[in-house]
Write a protein that binds this DNA or RNA. Sequence first.
RNA 1: GUCGGCGUGGCGGAAUAGGCAGACGCGCCAGACUUAGGAUCUGGUGCCCUCGGGCAUGGGAGUUCGAGUCUCCCCGCCGACACCA
Length: 811
Amino acid sequence: MRVTRRRGYVPQDIESKWQRIWRDRGVMRADDSSARAKFYNLVMFPYPSGDLHMGHMRNYVIGDLYSRFQRMRNYEVLNPFGWDAFGLPAENAAMKAGLHPETWTRDNVARAKEQLAMMGILYDWSREVTTCDPDYYRWTQWLFLLFYERGLAYRAMAPVNWCPVDQTVLANEQVVNGACWRHPDVPVEKRDLEQWFLRITEYADRLLDDIGLLDHWPERVRVMQANWIGRSHGVEVDFSVVGLDETMRIYTTRPDTLFGVTFMVLAPEHPLLEQVTTPENRSAVRAYVERARRETEIARLSTEGAKTGVPTGGWAINPLTGERLPIWVADYVLMTYGTGAIMAVPGHDQRDFEFARRFGLPVREVIAPPRGRRDGLSEAYTAAGVMVNSGRFDGLEGQAGFDAVADFVEERGYGRRAIRYRLRDWLISRQRYWGCPIPIVHCESCGVVPVPLDELPVLLPKTYRRLSELPEFYETTCSRCGGKARRETDTMDTFIDSSWYFLRYTSAQDQDAPFDPGLANHWMAVDQYTGGIEHAILHLLYSRFFQKVLHDAGLVDAVEPFARLFTQGMVTRGGQVMSKSLGNGVAPDDLVVREGADAGRIYEMFIGPPNEDAEWTDEAVAGPVRFLQKVWRLILDPDTIAATGTGAGAVDLRRKLHQTIRKVTEDYESFRFNTAVAALMELANAMQDYLAGGGERGAEWSEAVGTMIRLLNPMAPHIAEELWERTGGQGLCADAAWPDYDAITAADNEVTLVVQVAGKVRDRLRVPAGLDEPAATELALASEAARRALGNGGRPSRVVYVRDKLINIVP
RNA sequence: GUCGGCGUGGCGGAAUAGGCAGACGCGCCAGACUUAGGAUCUGGUGCCCUCGGGCAUGGGAGUUCGAGUCUCCCCGCCGACACCA
């Protein structure tokens, strides 16, 4: 083996050199026509908000590590990157600094690119995507028009969520606890506005059912998505209103409790409310509705306060019993779910129960608990039970009761089975400048007219100001009649931009289409998607929706965009998530200067399980630094390892080596990077033992050196390249083949057998692997511990033997 | 409130088809080498102890030859959803 000797490991001497070589040779460039099996590896693209810190880097290190690993395993890897570049922070920062949002964004992108490069993170930059580029948003607009054509984009007047700080409307998903997702202290307001929506509810069933296809997604993300969609099966029942020609339609998931209805409730916004209210109740009802409208969403949705409501004076008729039921108005009933009206069953619904208690309304039991477990009337009994006080249905239980009543209701024409969702249509209009313009004009005579495809993109004006304040932008002519028209001045929610970027990467330079269907079908689905758990609902749900619509339009085959998802934890320091505002972020620049990019990468992987949050400790980076120094010295300066006695032999070294190949390969595959680092450290220690024991630097040693370098490469690529070169490796280590392990070499031929007496460890024996039970028993009974426990010649009452592991003697 | 996750040395964390608790590393202690340096190497490091052992994975019970791992109850922390009929 040819070894170039030099002074010790100085990462700064080698890192920028290899970064330049990788870039010049286009190492991470993906070949669309490669004969190798494809592997689409993707990290969630960032919003370029400024300097990156090591908390952000965790995501990119994982992605880079995995790309390099899969390349070595002979996959043709597509590992692209881009920028989710539209959005409010750019506008806010621009206002503060007096810059154009685009200038601010481009500067941040340039800075972040430098930081990624200095960490040795590689992408196929020829496919870089920036969502605020006209080359990109032209196709975002094109896709909007596709949705419009397919009836999936519509404009509607609706009560919408308005953030008073950002001066824009928000999607349902962007309202968190009744507050704006970006300002947790700012309650959203309700406004009635005409806005654009995407009909995601049309896909509710498929979005829910196809979660079943996502075998390789974390369970908690699948549960969160299923809960968000919130499908429920129930029955709609029409109750006639006394003295009116109208019916009051309600939705219930418990038709088996229909005999327990004792009153009815309308939401304050319900259109029927005016009509059912009697003159003597009018002023009270109006006052109540006024108050409910003024209340913030937070106060109204709070489950803590006592329920409020007033009687309307109106009456409804239970179609099953003919009973007269008083109609109330109360804000615990939501206009936005079901029909905005409910039948109240205080005996078996906790909310109705509380309301009934507060206002002295009757409570009736129609579901009997299994064994008289009912504790008086302190709460509603909501679990399953047997129907009672329900006429012909008495005695039915659970689903049988549901079905019998539902059938009866349908036969008599009182109502019908229905499915409801929690999911709402996606409100995408934003009253902001720095976003993708909605390609629509409003013509005085033709109404809403889509911008013709050959006129795309609708460019943002250079001037940074509200679009609705820029006459040269919004005054235009109608493409249909040539008459005066006004442009839509809202821009799209930035989550639209990020709902299809993974498709654009497959043909990022395409000038004729958002993406080339052939290339999209070649690369999709994304094989490995890595990002933060905070996107569990918004981004991942929207992207799934887009993928399905594009599938239906015949543009792409896959019905799900992301085959395997990994959500990594956040990095904390001083107990809090690293962030710019807290000033506790570790800058990659400082780390690279002090310890080197490789040590930083390894530490970030070693810090803990990647799916969990991890606390960054500055001193602990020393471990990975020392490890790399040790590897360097072992490989380039083995003469300096003192022979301090008997160490492991060549057979032991090879066994450890092949065990390590197996362990590291499995750990990389399953994202257990922390234990992969530990395994490599153990191998380095074993190599040191070998040399210290006077081991020769022959074929076994060379095998260990070449293998160690390649196992290390995905994690610490700079030092791996340098060592690879100096030990005479062919080509780049990045292009080298991943080592295979030999199961026979890796097998232990001698194992430690634990001897237990009554379940307590009493001895340990070195025995040949695969020892059979009689032989093991004989050995164990002869041991000192066994003789002491059993006395001379005593026989155990029982012996439990687990091959190669343990033998338990029960006296 | 519902659902999900978690709780292991001074610290980060290993170990689950039930089988040696504490791998690997940080820190700490002792020693070696030394042109004294935040370098490197060697050994030690859960607690108690009468040196035979005893006790330890948030607390308590249970199943088992054997439990960090399985079951039940309780405590604590984190996250999601939260009046969805």
